[in-house]
Design a protein around this nucleic acid. Structure first.
Lengths: 246, 246
DNA sequence: CGAGGGTTTGAAGTGCATCAAATAGTGTGG
DNA sequence: CCACACTATTTGATGCACTTCAAACCCTCG
């Protein structure tokens, strides 16, 4: 499934690492040290990076593409926990607890990742207090995001969940009007929001009627962001613009 | 709402702190240091410890009783994130991110807490690497638990969620037969599981029929743990006995 | 052009919520 | 120890939201 590793280019990897929250404020030499142990891997669409409960040895930095985090039940259902954009570090949580991955990770389209040994991370945490703080900070961020996630799945209905998803996509200025592209399949968005594709389709139609947004394939034009926010955020504890996501 | 602070007894507080995961492996002197800054507070049932988005100055160790973590929407709905038993530390996550609490906390019955300054925790984290590691460890545990929570709310139906809740209550030996007491109100359990009291009642009745458990008020007798697990855990990614909760 | 996946639409079913009312349980004051 | 007030829990009837199953449509790509 996994394509051959490309010849790593040290400076590129260094640059990627330096941009992560994890490495923020770390001495160059430390980042260099990590980069030296990194391998670049190209993942084809559908490729499973690791599986839930698998013994963990590596963690990853997503350089390109999208990766889905999910869990599968015995019955064969699947719960999508999150879909990560480029720049995200994942799998690092396995360093704690029982040393196994807490979910499965799969490329939802062709992707490029940096593969890094967890042992290197462990050493760095112990030697570089700054890194431990960074990690605490990002873990806290994850925790907040998950709290939001639980709230959303409990209290928002399908059209609101979609609206919320759209609003998070236009998180830039305070513009009245935004045109954006859905980042991936509608089917995948549906899964990300915990609903079936059919429900997504109908809920989006509903949202169109109720908030005046215009949908053309993967292009969404929001004429009145405020109106969408009013419709959406009533069932949520935070109002638009919501706190920045991790 | 809050009852008067009791005269703090240093040794008791020390003992409570020492038992937490947070302080595990910490030098006695450090624990002593924390204990010196702690205050004991009695909370009456219903008392709000802190509110979501409130500027955070304190974190807490629950010595007695139960505390509910929740978020409220503009519409007045509430999502219960968790209900903490005695021994738990809470509010400490506010040390990271924007310095505000990520949820509201409320005593669901009369409770006793240790109140501790977040500044003390911050200093300790910076000076005592072991504490940073403990915190990372417990944060990672929370993250896992929340992942499970998201999965449960997405994939389990009402009777299964209740079954899962019961199974987590009898997590001791591998006994065939268990009799247990519900730790708090059925209404509260319902909220904790993301359902209405009426639904809880009906779902419990359903569970009784389907798995042969016997319910007498707050007493639940599980004749065949295996049978309950079979019924419940099909819609979950982990089978009984599930991983220990944080 | 045709195959195949993504998306939409329709019809019917299921599960949980809601509203309303009955019942059980608990603590209080007499 | 009883009656009352109040809350927790159960039960019934009904509605809405999401799912399921099925089929049509649409779009892209070989």
């Amino acid at each position: 499934m996994t394509a051959a590793a490309l010849k790593p280019r040290r400076t590129e990897m260094h640059a990627l690492l330096a941009r992560t929250h994890l490495c923020h404020g770390l001495p160059e030499s430390r980042i260099e040290e990590l980069a030296a142990q990194a391998a670049v891997k190209t993942l084809l669409k559908g490729c499973v990076v690791y599986s839930h409960e698998e013994e963990a040895s590596w963690f990853y930095l997503l350089a390109q593409g999208w990766v889905k985090l999910f869990r599968e039940t015995l019955d064969g259902d699947e719960a999508v926990l999150d879909i990560l954009p480029a720049g995200h570090v994942f799998g690092e949580t396995a360093l704690f607890g029982n040393g196994r991955y807490g979910a499965s990770a799969q490329a939802v389209e062709d992707a490029v990742v940096l593969v890094l040994p967890l042992t290197a991370l462990r050493r760095l945490i112990e030697e570089e207090p700054r890194l431990a703080l960074n990690m605490l900070d990002s873990m806290a961020g994850f925790r907040r995001q998950q709290e939001r996630e639980i709230e959303h799945r409990s209290l928002q209905n399908a059209p609101q969940r979609i609206g919320c998803f759209l609003l998070r996509l236009c998180d830039d200025g305070g513009r009245q009007t935004v045109t954006l592209h859905l980042p991936y399949d509608k089917t995948l968005i549906a899964a990300r929001l915990g609903m079936k594709p059919e429900t997504f389709s109908r809920a989006l139609a509903r949202l169109r009627e109720d908030t005046g947004i215009v949908v053309q394939g993967a292009t969404v034009h929001i004429g009145d962001v405020r109106r969408l926010a009013d419709y959406t955020c009533g069932a949520c504890s935070s109002t638009y613009p919501c706190e920045d996501k991790e």
